[in-house]
Structure formats: structure tokens, C-alpha cells
Design a protein around this nucleic acid. Sequence first.
DNA 1: AACCAACAAATTGTCGACAAAGTTACAGTA
DNA 2: TACTGTAACTTTGTCGACAATTTGTTGGTT
Lengths: 222, 222
Amino acid sequence: MTFFNEQPITSADKTFFQLRKEIVEGEIVQGSKLSETELSTKYSVSRAVIREAINRLEASHLVERKANVGARVVSLTAEGLLELYQVRESLEGMAARLAALNMTDQEITDLQSLLSSHFNEVKSGESYYQEAGDVDFHYRIILGSKNKHLISMLLDGIYHLVRMYRVQLGMSGPRVTTAYDEHKHIVQAICNRDAELAEMLMRRHILYSKSSIENKLEHTMQ
Amino acid sequence: MTFFNEQPITSADKTFFQLRKEIVEGEIVQGSKLSETELSTKYSVSRAVIREAINRLEASHLVERKANVGARVVSLTAEGLLELYQVRESLEGMAARLAALNMTDQEITDLQSLLSSHFNEVKSGESYYQEAGDVDFHYRIILGSKNKHLISMLLDGIYHLVRMYRVQLGMSGPRVTTAYDEHKHIVQAICNRDAELAEMLMRRHILYSKSSIENKLEHTMQ
DNA sequence: AACCAACAAATTGTCGACAAAGTTACAGTA
DNA sequence: TACTGTAACTTTGTCGACAATTTGTTGGTT
């Protein structure tokens, strides 16, 4: 799911996207070592493009590197999840605040119609909502902040790590309808241009979803 | 001022630090193009290490890159400064909140003594405070959050850009003593383990310092 | 058996050269 | 003169080879 217009230009782009996908979806298992020579033969590219891809993965917090030693895929831990959601709470709260100030009326209208189409899916019992729908909702609010740094930190930075936790913990479960209500209230606040409230609601929304995913992690990992 | 233990290992490390320093301090002027071949002859290293350094500068939001075109140093603008401080407010607010929860008693004691040594400097009229002292104060609170993502986003990420604005706008001016009072209240909140208040005070502190630096920018540019 | 040192193997870091894409200059045409 | 297409040139992207560092192994000594 590359849901925003990220089209690869160079060979390093393609390799980076491919590697990121495989890491997020667990095809390359967490904690495993990324050998440059190995990957270069696997993808039929030179080590230079592999190195560039790994550098970018490091900037995305998906791998960790040590000089003269190599790169490893990050490991998913309860502490890591907690820290990740603390950052999310902070940044997305600010995104909601700014979205209430900076989104155009048209963008807000689109967001509302997106939400009502989600409502129909939820009512008809499709589980599609939580995965793509939730991401789409948050995605639009982040863009609505119109803050370049915020956008790149969230979308290029930590969001793929969030997805990695979600995917590898087999996200689905309940919390679909309650999340819908929370989304509705956030949109309402944005529509009213109530920045203060929008931030507060978004922070609470993320706190709730953290608890939800935390349970899964406790049960999944020993 | 590399105030935290960042010691270069590889040649790319050294080049990265050097380039970052020159960009932050304005020796390489904002908006200028970074030619790979040119830099490689200037620093007597291969283009490979220059490319890695530029990639890292891009991850630090200090340069912008376009595929098959090249990299340019970012330009300092009023909008960019606003966006940067919005992110700072968000992240450092959370850092203060977490610091109130996670700093050890010893770390808090050290922070208090740091503050009182600052007080003496302020009282004796040294302007040293605003530059290094302020950075040191924020630095400790960020580390005190004990949140890996928060720390790397702030210290590796946006803090050098903050310094770039400060240095190139010739930071000094007033606001020294008032900032000291704000710092004092933040430390007090942390000492009381009042996370809510610590976050609120830090956010207001950053908002104030934004207004201060914004004035300078209006007067300095065009 | 445990420890240390030197050596061997594998991996990462660095380099110069070639390929590909973009930019500029110039000539030709309308 | 303005515009367009082509060609030369410059810059970035990619590659394979070499250098430097780390890791694993083997041999010897206590």
C-alpha cells in the first residue's frame, strides 16, 4: 500500500520501496541482518544502490546501522511501541490542530464524505475499514496540516513503522465502530475550526488505539 | 558546537559533520547548490562519501534533493520557521511531559544545578546564556524523555535547523532573563512530577521564543 | 580447560570509471 | 524576432574493484 504518490525514479528508489515493503510486511523478519552483498545479488543491482536504500531505511527508523558492522532490521518490542505512539500522539495531535486552521473548506467536505463512505462499510460489516480506511483518514489530516516537516516526519518517517507493528500483529479486531465515532468527532471539531479541541480529540484517539494494539502485542509476543 | 558525543568513525561521518557545520553556520549559503564533484575535490574524498553525507543532510532537513538534478541547501523563510517551531512545540512539549515521568531524581538535581549556574551567568551579565545554555537546557530535557524516537527526531533531525535559523539571524537580543524564569518553572513542574504542567509550560516557552525569533527574521530578511 | 595472539575469511567503506539523465548552446525554420 | 529541435556538455546515477575493519578460527601457552 503506497497510498500517496511516491513513484520511483532511480533504481535506488525502487530498491528502497521494495525493501521497505518487505520489512513492513515481515517478509524480511524483524531483527535480521541486511547483508549488502546478499541483497545486491538478490535484486540484481550494485552495492551502491543497496547502501543508499539502507541509508534511507535507517532514516525511516526501520533499520539500525553500526559503522563497519552492518545494518539490522529493528525489533518490535512493547517499549518501542509505547515510544512510537507517544511520538504519534504528539505529532498527530499537532497535525489535527493545524488541520483545523489550514484545511480548505473543500478538503473538509471531502473528509466528511470519506467518513460517511466509511460508515456504510462499517454498517455492512466490511473489515476493510480499519486497515486502509483508518490510514486514509489520518493521512488526509496530516496533509491538511500543510506543515512540510510534520508531513515528512509522519509519512516518510514513523508511519511505516506504525504499519509494521500493525501488519505483523495481525491488525483487525474490534475497535472499528468506536474508532469511527472518534473520527467523526475529530472531523466535527475541524469543521468548526476548533483547533484546541481537534488536537485534544486526536491525542485521545491515538491513546485509545495504543491500548488496543498493546493488548495484541502482549498476547502475540511471549 | 557538537555538544553530544557524536564522534566520527568513517570518512563519510567526518564529511557529514563538516558539511552540516558549514551549512548551519552559513559558510555554505542557504539555497546554494551542492555539487558532488566540486565537494569531492574540496574535501579530497570520493563522490561516494559526498553522496552519503548529502543523503544524511537531506534526512536532517538541511538540504533538499531532486532525482537526477541535485541537492540544494534549504532556504530560510518565515513560513519555514513557523512550521519548524510548530513541530518543536509539539515534540518538545511531549519531551517535557515524558521527562517529568522518566527522569531520575539525580538527573533532575543536575538540571536544577545547571539552572542555578545559568542564573549566576545571567546576573553577571554574560550573554553566554542564550546560546549554549539554552541549548543545554533543552538538550537535557529531551534526553530525559528516554524516548528513542523523540530524541533522534529532535537532536539528529530538526535541532540543527533550529540552530541554523538562530545562528544566521544573529541570535542574542533580549529575552534572556524571561527565558530563565520559564526554564525555572519547567524544572519545577518536572521536579513535582507534574507531566501535564511540564508539557504546557514547555509549549508556551517555545511559542514565546518563536515570537522573539520571528521578529528578527522579519527585520533581517529583505 | 581456559585464555591469548596471530592469522584467515567475510563484510563494510572508499575509490575511479562508465552509463544515463538533465541542462545549455546553437543552428535552422517559420 | 521568436520558436524548436538537435547536439555538445555538465551533473547525477550505477557499477565493479580495491582498501580497511571486524569477526571467526586456529594454534600455542599457562
